[in-house]
Design a protein around this nucleic acid. Structure first.
Length: 467
RNA sequence: GGCGAGUUGGCGGAGCGGUUACGCAGCGGAUUGCAAAUUCGUCUAGACCAGUUCGACUCUGGUACUCGCCUCCA
C-alpha cells in the first residue's frame, strides 16, 4: 500500500498519514453556505477533496472512507438574500422564501458539482437538522466555563482556551491590536465569538435555554462532525480563508466541549483562486459561477482538469488559455483511449504522485507519459482515479459516426501504426493501415487532429480482428 | 499594524544538494508522393545579495517584490 503523505496545517509539515482506524477513515470538509450558485472559487475545494476522497478509497477500500460535507442553511447571508427577494416582490413569508432558497441552492450545488465529476460525500448534513446537537454542545461549553450568556447571546470565551490561535499561528494580543475586530459591549473580550444569538420572529429561529434564536456560524461544524465522525477523526479540510476564524473557532469549541477528543488530526487548506491574475470580485467583472462556465460551453471535466493541474496549496490563476490547453489535452486523450479498453489499473507513479500530498500536477504529468507510450488501459485507469474520463467519450471530444468502443479500437490501432513507423517497421505499419482500410475505416489526417470516417464497407468484426 | 505563503525557462507548472520534469508554444530533424498527424532532438530557468558545501534552483540568513488572511468568503 502506498503511504499517503499530507501537509498538516496544524504542524506546518508534510506528515505520513496514519488513519485512526484504517477500516473507517473519516474526513470532514466545510461545505457551502447555500444562498447562491457556487462560483469557481467554491469549486476548488470540492474538486480537491473529491480527489483526496478517491485516493483514500483507492488506498483503504471503497467502504472504508466516510466523507462528510455540510450545507450551511442558516446564516445571515441567507436571511439577507431572502429579504432582498422579498423587497423585489416575493410576498411570501420570509421563512418560506428561505426554505425555498436553500433547497434550490442545494439542488444547484449538486448539479454543478456533479458536472465537475465530483462524487457525493457519504454524508451531507444540513445545519438546520443539527440544532439540537448544537444547543447541547453550547450547554456543555457553558457548564465547563468556556462560554457565557450575555444579552440573549451565548459567547465563547476565548481566554478560557489556552491553545486558541494555534492553528493559524496567531496570538490574542496581536489580533486585538488589529483594527478589524468587532467591538460589542456584550462581549467580555473583542475576540469572543457568537455561539448563539437571538432571532426575530420573521427569521428562522429555534427555542433554546437562552430564548428563541439561531446558532452562530462555527458551531454547526463542531456539532455535525461530533455526531457523524466522533470527537476525534482524521482529516478536516476547507479553503485557506477558513483557517481563521472559522477553523480556529471550531477547534476551540470542539476541544473544550470534548476535552478527551483530539478533534481533527490533520488540517488541510486549499489556496485561493484568482482570475486572469486578479482577485476574483464582482466589481472587476471577473466573478463567475460554475454554471456560467458550463453555459459558455466549457465542459465540467475541463474545469476539473484545470483545477487539478495546479497543486492545491498554491494559488491558482484561472485563465482562458489554461482552459483551452486543458480541453486540448483531454480531447487528445479521449480520442486515444475510447471506451473499450477500460481494464487497467492506475500507474504506480500516478498513485505515488497523488499520495505525495495530493500532487495532482505530477499525476497529470505521468498521464502525459502514458499517452506517449500508448498505454491506453493504464492511462484510462489513472485518469479515472483523478475523476476524469469516467463516463465514456463526451460529445465535445467525440468522433462522429463511431461508437466509443470503435473509436477506442481505431485510435489504439493508429497509435500502433505510429509506433511501428517509429522503429521503421513499415511492414507492420502498412499492415495496420491496410487492415484499417479493409475494415472500412478511412483515415484522413488533418491539420488539427487525425480524423477517420466510416467507409461503405465498414465492418467492426474485421476491426476487432486487428487487435 | 499582526500572521502566513510564495517568487522556476515565452506561458503554465513539478521534483530534486550533483544526473531530462511534464505540458503548451518555438526551432531543427525523421517519417511522407506532397502535406497532416505522429515521432525524435533542441534553445530560452530558478527575484536579488551573502553564507554553508567539493558542489545549490534545491539548505541557512538578509533584501526586494507579489499574494492571502486578520471583516462575509472556498
Amino acid at each position: 500500500m502506498t503511504k499517503i503523505k499530507l501537509y498538516n496545517t496544524k504542524t506546518r509539515t508534510k506528515e505520513d498519514f496514519v488513519p485512526i482506524d484504517a477500516a473507517n477513515v473519516r474526513m470532514y470538509v466545510c461545505g457551502p453556505t447555500v444562498y447562491d450558485r457556487a462560483h469557481i472559487g467554491n469549486a476548488r475545494p470540492v474538486v480537491v477533496f473529491d480527489t483526496l476522497f478517491r485516493l483514500l478509497r483507492h488506498t483503504y477500500g471503497h467502504y472504508a472512507v466516510r466523507y462528510v460535507r455540510n450545507f450551511t442553511d442558516v446564516d445571515d447571508k441567507i436571511n439577507a438574500r431572502a429579504a432582498e427577494m422579498k423587497v423585489k416582490g416575493d410576498d411570501r413569508d420570509l421563512k418560506a422564501i428561505i426554505r425555498e432558497l436553500t433547497d434550490q441552492t442545494i439542488a444547484w450545488y449538486h448539479e454543478d458539482m456533479e458536472a465537475l465529476g465530483t462524487l457525493r460525500p457519504t454524508d451531507e448534513p444540513r445545519a438546520t437538522e443539527y440544532i439540537a446537537q448544537m444547543v447541547s454542545m453550547i450547554e456543555r461549553l457553558i457548564e465547563r466555563g468556556n462560554a457565557y450568556v450575555s444579552e440573549g447571546h451565548v459567547l465563547f470565551d476565548v481566554n478560557s482556551y489556552d491553545a486558541y490561535g494555534a492553528l493559524s499561528g496567531r496570538k490574542l494580543e496581536d489580533m486585538r491590536a488589529g483594527k478589524r475586530v468587532e467591538i460589542a459591549d456584550y462581549k467580555r473580550d473583542p475576540m469572543d465569538f457568537v455561539l448563539w444569538k437571538p432571532s426575530t420572529d420573521d427569521l428562522p429561529g429555534w427555542d433554546s435555554p437562552w430564548g428563541r434564536g439561531r446558532p452562530g456560524w462555527h458551531i454547526e461544524c463542531s456539532a455535525m462532525s461530533l455526531d457523524l465522525l466522533g470527537a476525534t477523526f482524521d482529516i478536516h479540510g476547507g479553503g485557506l480563508d477558513l483557517q481563521f476564524p472559522h477553523h480556529e473557532n471550531e477547534i476551540a469549541q470542539s476541544c473544550c466541549a470534548n476535552p478527551d477528543g483530539g478533534f481533527a488530526n490533520v488540517w488541510m487548506h486549499n489556496e485561493m483562486i484568482q482570475v486572469e491574475g486578479k482577485k476574483m470580485s464582482k466589481s472587476l467583472g471577473n466573478f463567475f459561477t460554475v454554471k456560467d462556465l458550463l453555459d459558455k460551453g466549457i465542459p465540467g471535466e475541463v474545469i476539473r482538469f484545470v483545477i487539478l493541474s495546479t497543486h492545491y496549496r498554491s494559488p491558482m490563476d484561472w485563465t482562458a488559455k489554461r482552459v483551452a490547453e486543458a480541453q486540448k489535452t483531454l480531447t487528445k486523450w479521449y480520442r486515444l483511449v475510447g471506451l473499450a479498453l477500460d481494464n487497467g489499473t492506475p500507474h504506480p507513479e500516478v498513485i505515488s504522485g497523488l499520495s505525495d500530498d495530493l500532487n495532482t500536477a505530477r499525476a497529470i504529468a505521468e498521464c502525459h507519459q502514458l499517452g506517449h507510450a500508448g498505454d491506453v488501459p493504464t492511462l484510462r485507469a489513472s485518469m479515472s482515479l483523478l475523476g476524469l474520463m469516467e463516463n465514456g467519450i463526451p460529445e465535445w471530444a467525440k468522433v462522429e459516426g463511431f461508437t466509443d468502443a470503435e473509436t477506442g479500437y481505431v485510435r489504439f490501432l493508429l497509435q500502433k501504426r505510429d509506433n511501428a513507423r517509429k522503429v521503421r517497421n513499415f511492414q507492420k505499419a502498412d499492415g495496420i493501415r491496410d487492415g484499417l482500410a479493409n475494415a472500412g475505416v478511412v483515415v484522413r489526417d488533418t491539420s488539427d487532429e487525425p480524423e477517420f470516417n466510416k467507409g461503405d464497407n465498414f465492418d467492426v468484426a474485421k476491426l476487432e480482428g486487428l487487435l
